[in-house]
Design a protein around this nucleic acid. Structure first.
Lengths: 328, 328
DNA sequence: TTCACGATTGTGAACGTTAACATCATGAGC
DNA sequence: GCTCATGATGTTAACGTTCACAATCGTGAA
């Protein structure tokens, strides 16, 4: 920077002012400085800047298994929104989901000097780790708990599950079976609750849910069991991958979808529209989730003192395709 | 840090030494310092450290559409390996794939002071951007060009495509149709070449390939065209998502897979094993790619002076499932 | 007892930037 | 012509580490 200053015949402070678009710099001085910058190929050192401003313009994201479509999409949305706002994104993907791991990850990020963290950790255990955030660290949880000491952005899982369940009931099905996600996932819980409440509201019997782990394999196994059960005409799977497994198991068992059994999923993965048959599902707007996360987080970073905690709920859409039809 | 030093009754330098596990610190001094650190809840400031050492222990990753299974998995592998090596990962996901975007992203990361960059940009245009890397910046490309001014880690696309094509020929198919990826993708090109060379080697006719954009939709459209063409008995799709679209189109057209037409994909996405029918495909070890990236990059960072450029090729596996069978 | 030498600890400067304040010129208003 | 506000620029001191070097302490051999 001092090289630039020397070449432009000004002080380093003036160079800094030009760089930061300070208004009080004469136009010709600015031009001279910019020229010098160009000539020397100078790039400012953001590390030094972060040291003195104690703002790194970096956000941390803690996530779990970014290979899954949901987390990957959320991450993408977060990164896009963050960069649009002039922030960098530093990520930590956890292999396991214990509170200790989340805590450690947040610790790392804190040391690194991030201005805030987004925690995409939709497990009950991981959400618990949020209760021991470093004081003063702005944070947003995606699908976090209802505890009030952290802001939360989430998709209305209950509503999504209700949409799916009601859709099936409206088609004349007596009741709807459910293949749920792992019990410690908040999303799994929300979808379970939504499904159950929709059935109860309609005064229908609530069958015992089958529990899976989000994987196609789990869906397949649940599908085999469902195919063997008499009277099953409608299945709501807690995500599309499991729905896909269910479809496979039903096909293998010679059960026709949707003629004999209707299947509905959740997520709207890119594959959903091209399965056999194309899958009726609940679409989540992960982009919106990412955007809201950054909005909330930036508000919190810019707030003076401990801001209030927000809770932002994104409504899901329902996409009707060919895997659901009127009851046989 | 000076607070810790005062509490422990030592100089700030000794605290630094304890933190960096310098050997020449007496055991009881170390204990006293650690105690003080604990008591004050002190965390070191990595930004200040980065300023003076000019090492941020952060790596940058530039990627394109991390929503896709391949890039997402590669990213995951990279992050895991980087963290294991004590590095942070800062990401930039590009929405579009022009060289300008890649250049800009690398510029951002350079300003931020990353110690090296991994560029996952398997398009010809993006790969070109690597030719104008900031001098002295360690870099690794995933699926980059063959140009020698940057290290490359890649999966042997040609070999994978040859495995798939030969498998189908061995099953007695006269020839194999191909649904390729977008022409400016290096992976698409590699798979096309592998497919073509396998056919030529066997002295078989080489049909005009159908070009897609990796999406299930593109596969579906290609599938419809293939279903209408007489004499098609085997199709090799350049990725699993397109293969899925092909399967869907064939199912719609009443063509049975694999009895009438065999289909093979590429990637082995988690869904592949549970499609109808389960998809024969080429598995890519993205974890290995991520690991190798970090290994190569760290070697380059630790090397004194301009190291040599490496080229590391990961061999794909072939997974036989039910979507391929002997020719009708 | 003395000395040399390695182990341990301390001191000051530096990394590259911005914040805070100081300085200087310019021009408007009386 | 004088004062005073305002805009443009410069000067100095941080930010929290590590590096290079200096100083001190202890220990074993002569």
């Amino acid at each position: 920077m001092s090289d630039v200053a020397r070449l432009a015949g000004v002080s380093h402070q003036t160079v800094s002012r030009v760089l930061n678009e300070h208004p009080n710099v004469r136009a010709d001085t600015r031009a001279r400085v910019l020229d010098a910058i160009d000539q020397l190929g100078y790039r400012r050192n953001l590390v030094a800047r972060a040291l003195v401003t104690s703002r790194s313009r970096t956000l941390g994201v803690v996530s779990f298994d970014t290979t899954l479509y949901g987390p990957a999409s959320t991450m993408y949305g977060i990164e896009q929104a963050a960069r649009a706002a002039g922030y960098f994104v530093s990520i930590v993907s956890l292999r396991s989901i214990d509170a200790e791991g989340v805590r450690e990850a947040i610790g790392y990020l804190t040391e690194q000097g991030v201005d805030g963290v987004v925690v995409v950790a939709p497990q009950r255990s991981a959400a618990r780790a949020l209760e021991s955030l470093p004081p003063g660290m702005p944070a947003v949880a995606v699908e976090g708990t209802h505890r009030a000491n952290v802001s939360v952005v989430c998709i209305d899982q209950i509503e999504g599950a209700r949409l799916a369940t009601k859709h099936l009931l409206d088609l004349g099905h007596e009741t709807v079976w459910h293949v749920s996600g792992p019990s410690d996932w908040l999303e799994a819980e929300g979808r379970l609750d939504g499904w159950r409440s929709a059935l109860e509201e309609a005064g229908r019997p609530v069958p015992e849910p089958l529990t899976g782990d989000w994987s196609p394999k789990a869906g397949y196994e649940a599908g085999r069991r469902l195919a063997a059960m008499p009277g099953v005409t409608a299945v709501f799977a807690a995500n599309d991958q499991m729905a896909l497994g269910v479809l496979r198991a039903l096909a293998e068992a010679g059960v026709r979808v949707p003629e004999q059994i209707s299947v509905v999923g959740f997520d709207d993965i890119p594959e959903a529209a091209y399965l056999s048959p194309p899958l009726t599902t609940v679409r989540q707007d992960f982009d919106a989730v990412g955007r809201h996360c950054i909005e909330v987080l930036l508000r919190q970073i810019d707030a003076i003192g401990p801001g209030t905690y927000e809770r932002l709920v994104v409504r899901p859409d329902f996409v009707v395709r060919a895997s659901s039809a009127t009851a046989p």
